[in-house]
Design a protein around this nucleic acid. Structure first.
Lengths: 358, 358
DNA sequence: TGTTAGCACTCAACGCGAAAGAGTGCTAAT
DNA sequence: ATTAGCACTCTTTCGCGTTGAGTGCTAACA
């Protein structure tokens, strides 16, 4: 059976009506729309056809129709119109990205919060996973009496730091010396290569003050592993409570359990694999059984053509795809723009590492 | 009417039964307990008395009794026995605090997560609010080509840092120069005192490179304001979904709305004001109407006698006070121990500031 | 041949009342 | 002072008829 223009219009109308109302839509309410001038009976016939094609379903015999996963898919792929963001939304976005010159993590979190506010849905953010986590440079800086800061940068330009609490005061020159020793021994190594044997070497190089060394190694290791693991977070989780889909606590718990488990969530995002463009996972397309009634829209953000991280929106399958997709693409584009601009031509985040400096 | 020993025993039994079952407890189930050898009828008489005293209430005439706020209060203040933490719980705690030598924030977050795991309740953590946020020392360190790190420490020893992305490479000596200029102009000032006029002064001191300066000032301001505002966070929020008290989404939303609003939450915590010991707010004692069915247990943690921050547990009024209170005191004591030990005799966090060094 | 009005049919949702069950308060006996 | 017994109350549950939205089918119509 062919999906002619009239069927397409009807399907679109049904999907959009359902997205708004959350209630199965009947033939009468569609026949009332002025754009298609048809009686309820005709609509009913068409609905029957659409159901046969697997695009619609009935919760029960005497109910209206509800889009199936396939129906939403058809809508998203070829029916819906692009939503234009309002001036207010654009303004909100601008504000979230205007506090420039910050760390990547803070920028992304701010953007996620703003987007969650606009969509009224939870937003998932993923920060870059570095490649291999190769230590490029380590620096120890005296900050205060009894406190030094350890700054580790890796080859991909990510920077992590840790405070180092000491039992005794150290001189600035000792900090410099320590920096040098650490760099000589650890620069160029990956996290897995930093182990007891390096530690021994460094210990002998220092020759004294064993306690500081142990702490330092511990902290370097910790900082590097943080670089190594991709970070993931969720903002605006409680937004979903507004949807009738989550009127039962069991449903809420099901979703929360997935979203609070970073491991699982990370797997989900990676499986969605939005390598180079916005990806939409609808209902039954979701890889986790617990999420079969939800949808995920996810898109990458970049800094001059290189993938940096991901931003996603999760919600009921009955979400406003048009707004969400347009919005997400707008936001990731903005984010990419900010990152590309702010971090200069030779990207701080992306630079592959050339010379060392200590 | 006096609260004799028998009444106390009965009240205790009722409260504990209700904490376990979440259902109004009837006279029969209490009379079955071997420790008080009484018939249901006798228990009923006593229950009537306890109700008259405002310690129990009936949801409706033919239901069992439920503790009132006053009943819980009596239980917490003078009836309950101290819960002894199990070896497994202590081990979990030990692990959470064993990754020492970290930043305060990370330690507290780890402890909160561990405690949330043990209690199965949301845990609220509050990090120190500094006094006035006086800048003690500012340091600019070159980290990488095009990147420098700005490290601001305040008089109370809190340290914040910001990455500084540059359009051009800078030399280490320029970073040092910048550090010196910033210190000369900003050390000793509070956040509100750092404004346009200082900025002008510094600008004239540098004499060139206006763009870097603007960013630096912005970041200093940002870092100092972060010191100035107390940080607050909630861990394990989804735990509450397990309780029948939150079987309706409205109830969940009510609680979530309060806990997601950091402003409100902060006010709540401050009003609870657990100045020097564990404080329990029960049901109607809660300052917010939306929380009249919840309770909050909150306790301070310290570093050698000086208040550092707070840790709290929030949940239904029907919470296991004995476990929660014992656990929280154990945890805050551990935390205080770690902080006191790790940060040396002259506390890094608490030191009032003596000399400067650049 | 496509469209529409009419109508019987289906099924969830709602409201109502009877029955069950848990627990109480009171009274009288121990 | 305690307890057994009993009438009473009130929620919970279940069954059941009613309602109403919406369908599918058929026959009339353009």
């Amino acid at each position: 059976m062919a999906l002619d223009d009239r069927k397409r219009l009807i399907l679109q109308a049904i999907v959009e009506d359902y997205i708004n109302s959350a209630e199965p839509v009947g033939s009468r309410s569609i026949s009332k729309k002025p754009e298609l001038n048809l009686s309820a009976a005709t609509i009913r016939n068409e609905m029957g056809d659409l159901e046969e094609m697997g695009l619609l379903a009935q919760p029960h015999t005497s109910a209206g129709r509800v889009p199936t996963t396939g129906g939403y898919r058809m809508y998203v792929d070829s029916l819906m119109e692009r939503y234009e963001m309002t001036a207010a939304e654009i303004e909100k976005m601008r504000q979230a990205t205007s506090m420039k010159k910050q760390e990547l993590e803070k920028i992304v979190r701010d953007v996620a919060a703003a987007f969650s506010g606009i969509t009224g849905l939870p937003v998932i953010g993923m920060l870059p996973a570095s490649e291999a986590g190769v230590v490029k440079n380590i620096k120890v800086v005296k900050v205060d009496d009894y406190t030094a800061m350890l700054i580790v940068s890796d080859k991909s330009g990510i920077i992590k730091n840790r405070l180092l609490k000491l039992n005794q005061d150290i001189s600035e020159s000792f900090a410099d010396e320590l920096s040098q020793i650490l760099n000589q021994n650890l620069a160029g190594l990956t996290i897995s290569e930093i182990n007891i044997s390096n530690m021994m070497e460094i210990r002998s190089a220092i020759g004294h003050n064993f306690e500081i060394l142990t702490s330092v190694i511990e902290l370097v290791h910790e900082a590097v592993s943080e670089i190594d693991s991709k970070q993931i977070f969720v903002d605006g989780l409680s937004n979903i409570l507004r949807f009738p889909e989550y009127s039962s606590v069991d449903k809420v718990k099901e979703l929360f359990d997935v979203l609070e488990d970073k491991e699982n969530l990370s797997k989900l995002i990676v499986e969605a694999n939005p390598t180079n463009c916005t990806k939409v996972l609808i209902g039954e397309e979701m890889p986790l059984d617990a999420l079969k009634n939800n949808s995920l829209v996810i898109a990458p953000y970049r800094a001059s053509d290189r993938l940096v991280g991901l931003l996603g929106v999760i919600g009921p399958a009955r979400m406003d795809y048009s707004r969400i997709i347009s919005g997400l693409e707008f936001f990731t584009a903005q984010l990419s723009g900010v990152l590309t601009k702010d971090f200069g031509t030779r990207q701080i985040l992306l630079e592959m590492g050339k010379g060392d400096e200590t």
